Amino acid sequence: MDTSDRTALVVIDMINTYDHEDAELLVPSVRKAAPAIARLLRRARAGDVPVVYVNDNFGEWRSHHGELLETALAGPHAELVEPLRPDGASLFVVKARHSIFYETPLHYLLTQQGVGHVVLCGQVTEQCVLYSALDAHMRHLRVTIPEDAVAHIHEDLARAALGMMSRNMDADIRPADDIFL
């Protein structure tokens, strides 16, 4: 396999306390998406596929990924975070804006790992996942979105976002269990 054909599983914003605006709309969708994300994580780890967590820092500029995880696990929805927590081999990138690429070292990291294909899972479909898929497409990465492993705030906007990713970004949209890792 050409190394630029290597796949990475990218987990977006799943280390979360869910104490923000719209959380009450998001949490039910996260509950539905989390099992599919957990299955993707197990398959990626078993197959030696790079797993990269890209997560908001929630304005905590002095924190690192361990502190973000500890805070989320101490929060009111730790049961959503625990099954998806990074393991010792996981890579972690902190972001401050919607796109996983905006002013982060992610593209460089993926290049160093020989990644040409990203599977984007996590939250929020109509926000961070959509903008990240666009930025991945603009960087000539192949994009796959497991439709059952992304969580939304607004279902109608999420459906539209998935349609846009498929049509405008050539993203492969399919169930998580149908994705080859």
Rank of each mutant, 00 (worst) to 15 (best):
M1F: 07
S4D: 15
A8H: 04
V11H: 07
V11K: 07
I12Q: 04
N16Q: 12
T17G: 15
Y18D: 05
H20S: 12
H20Q: 14
E24L: 03
L25H: 10
L26D: 00
V27Q: 03
S29T: 03
V30C: 10
V30H: 01
K32N: 09
P35T: 01
A36P: 02
L40R: 14
R43K: 09
V49A: 03
V52F: 05
N55S: 02
D56P: 06
D56C: 07
F58V: 03
F58E: 09
F58L: 11
G59A: 01
G59Y: 01
E60K: 15
W61K: 15
W61G: 15
L69C: 09
L73G: 06
P76W: 01
L80P: 04
L80C: 04
L80G: 03
E82N: 00
L84W: 04
P86A: 10
D87S: 00
G88N: 07
G88A: 03
L91H: 15
F92Y: 13
F92P: 04
V93S: 02
A96T: 15
R97W: 09
H98R: 15
H98I: 12
S99K: 11
S99Y: 02
I100P: 11
I100W: 03
F101P: 07
Y102T: 13
Y108H: 13
L110G: 04
Q112G: 14
V118A: 03
V119F: 02
C121K: 06
G122H: 02
E126Y: 07
V129D: 08
L130D: 05
L130Q: 01
D135H: 10
A136K: 05
A136T: 06
H137E: 06
I145M: 12
P146C: 05
E147T: 10
E147V: 14
D148M: 09
A149D: 05
A151M: 07
I153D: 05
D156P: 11
L157T: 13
A158K: 11
A158Q: 05
A160C: 10
A161S: 15
L162T: 13
L162C: 13
M165P: 06
S166D: 10
D170G: 09
D170A: 11
A171R: 08
D172Y: 11
I173F: 05
A176P: 07
A176S: 12
